[in-house]
């Protein structure tokens, strides 16, 4: 089995790789959510062509493999003058990929905001900006947080795909180590257990966050948050 001296030798590289994984994941989630939210808002505008373009964007992203999107960005990009470093391409790729899914999650959340809550704000003379910030987004957060957490767990898993375009994240460092030490199977098994744990941690933290965000709904019958089974995946 895995030799301890190997861990000492490769420890720093693995740790660095883990740092890159977390960076890519965090930045990718952030870009995905911001972009997804913007797309959702733009879709509310009564401009038909804009809606079609956004719809097409979402369908294309959701209808093609993440790996193909990464190759297009990283290898295809330079043909149109878009030269990105592997890590940058990885983060951007994760963000774009996530944005399509987040846009759909947010759209469902937006539609689920009870109309009366918005009307109450309108009748008090609140501006759309205030209503969005103070009424719609908090209400959306409640109904979408299980789906958001699920998507974040999915993106955790997708970070390993970045190793294919040579982003020096954990998976990439691990493969380097495996190749140099010939302890391939053991290393991969270790990785599997590690990611299993990581995804579990992300999901647990997510559930805790969900409980926190929806705390004020206790004893509310109709609007209780329903944690959907996390069978969705990308």
């Amino acid at each position: 089995m895995l030799d301890l001296s190997l861990l000492v030798q490769y420890g720093p590289a693995l740790l660095r790789g883990f740092g890159v994984t977390i960076l890519c994941w965090g930045a990718g989630c952030l870009i995905g959510m911001v972009l997804g939210f913007a797309l959702m808002l733009l879709r509310q505008l009564p401009v038909k062509p804009l809606r079609w373009v956004i719809r097409a964007y979402i369908e294309v992203i959701r209808g093609t493999p993440f790996l193909i999107q990464l190759f297009l960005l990283y290898s295809g990009g330079p043909s149109i003058g878009l030269r990105l470093e592997a890590t940058t391409a990885g983060i951007l790729g994760l963000g774009i990929y996530g944005s399509a899914y987040f846009a759909e999650i947010f759209r469902a959340g937006y539609q689920a905001v009870p109309k009366g809550q918005v009307e109450a704000a309108l009748s008090l003379g609140m501006s759309y900006g205030s209503i969005l910030r103070r009424v719609i987004v908090p209400a959306m957060l409640v109904s979408t947080i299980p789906a958001i957490v699920n998507m974040m767990a999915i993106l955790t898993k997708e970070t390993v795909v970045l190793s294919i375009i040579t982003v020096p994240e954990l998976m990439y460092e691990m493969q380097t180590m495996a190749a140099e030490t010939f302890a391939t199977f053991e290393t991969i098994l270790g990785m599997a257990l590690f990611y299993w744990l990581l995804v579990e941690v992300v999901s647990r933290l997510g559930r805790r966050l969900e409980a926190r965000v929806t705390r004020f709904l206790t004893h509310a019958s109709p609007q209780g948050s329903s944690s959907e089974t996390a069978t969705a995946r990308a």
Partner: peptide
């Protein structure tokens, strides 16, 4: 169920790919 939903597919694939010969 927990393992195969929690571990990235790429790792599962490599795991099986390297495990079968072993």
């Amino acid at each position: 169920v927990s393992f195969f939903r929690g571990v990235p597919l790429l790792i599962q694939l490599l795991l099986i790919y390297y495990m079968l010969p072993l």
